[in-house]
């Protein structure tokens, strides 16, 4: 029995009388502790898959099982890190994480324990020093780190990352990727990450799930990345497994399933 199972999921949206089928027959099984990336062209339905797993969107067909139980709606056991951080601007960094901690651990941890747990998670992403700052006072990379801390602090069964580094510059992005890898190796989280960056997918993932173009997008290929951990980006430059994996994803995205706009 897989830890997370996306079972024959399809979804259609109705808009102004017209129905668009966005996803059709998506099947995916993920084991505990696995790091899975979903890659595909913009608009194919990656975020939609993630939102269905999060419970924010109900699928039109099929369903999602987490530890054998059907996902009925959103909940803190499936924490989401949204693309644009979605920190609440009127709360400080600490208060943003605290909101989640207090909600999830009320009754299970004492007040002091909850405060320590908040601090611990901020330290995990190296943001404890800015705990009293508000989101607009810190950089984009820092906001994303706080978003990750907030998600980790919920102790989710599965962590859902929607293009978490998409809006960052290359250096910040690399730095954050290393931190996420480090956290993953330390805590053994189960992670689904949406990305459109081939290098990022290969570097971070145990598996790369490639999606075909919409409408009615589905999983085109599911590839294992047989690279040992810990992975260091510099050592991978000439690595043939790394280069082969990279080439396979590129081939899928740009030869077999070109973006509709590029194909024209």
């Amino acid at each position: 029995m897989a830890y997370l199972k996306i079972d024959h999921v399809g979804i259609s949206f109705q808009r102004a009388g017209a129905t668009t089928e966005v996803l059709r027959d998506v099947n995916l099984s993920i084991e505990k502790g696995e790091y899975v990336s979903i890659i595909g062209h913009s608009g194919c339905g990656k975020s939609t898959v993630l939102n269905i797993v999060a419970g924010l969107l109900p699928p039109s067909q099929g369903g999602v099982l987490l530890e054998g139980r059907a996902v009925e709606g959103p909940g803190p056991d499936r924490a989401v890190v949204f693309q644009n951080h979605s920190l609440l601007p009127w709360l400080t960094v600490r208060e943003n994480v605290e909101l989640a901690v207090n909600k999830v651990f009320r009754g299970r941890k004492s007040k002091a324990e909850r405060r320590d747990w908040t601090r611990h998670n901020l330290e995990l992403v190296h943001m404890a020093h800015a705990e009293n700052k508000r989101p607009h006072e810190i950089s984009g990379g820092m906001k994303q780190r706080v978003g990750i801390a907030r998600a980790l602090a919920m102790e989710p069964k599965i962590l859902l990352l929607d293009e978490p580094f998409g809006a960052l510059d290359a250096l910040t992005r690399a730095h954050l990727q290393d931190q996420v890898m480090e956290i993953h190796s330390r805590l053994g989280n189960t992670i689904i990450m949406i990305t459109h960056d081939v290098d990022e997918a290969v570097l971070l993932s145990d598996r790369i799930v490639m999606m075909t173009n919409g409408p009615a997008a589905t999983i085109g290929e599911d590839m294992h990345v047989a690279l040992e951990r810990p992975r260091r980006r510099l050592e991978l430059v000439g690595n043939s497994t790394y280069n082969d994996a990279r080439a396979a994803v590129l081939e899928f995205l740009y030869a077999r399933h070109r973006a509709p706009t590029l194909a024209a």
């Binding site: 999060a54 419970g55 924010l56 909940g75 803190p76 989401v80 609440l88």
Partner: peptide, 27 residues
């Protein structure tokens, strides 16, 4: 109110009252 804030509230399972005081009013 950005959909993102509403989604955060849903993931955290904020009660309607918590949603009102913690998100709706400040936003």
């Amino acid at each position: 109110i950005p959909q993102d804030y509403r989604n955060v509230a849903k993931v955290l399972r904020l009660s309607p009252i918590e949603f009102f005081t913690r998100i709706m009013v400040p936003a």
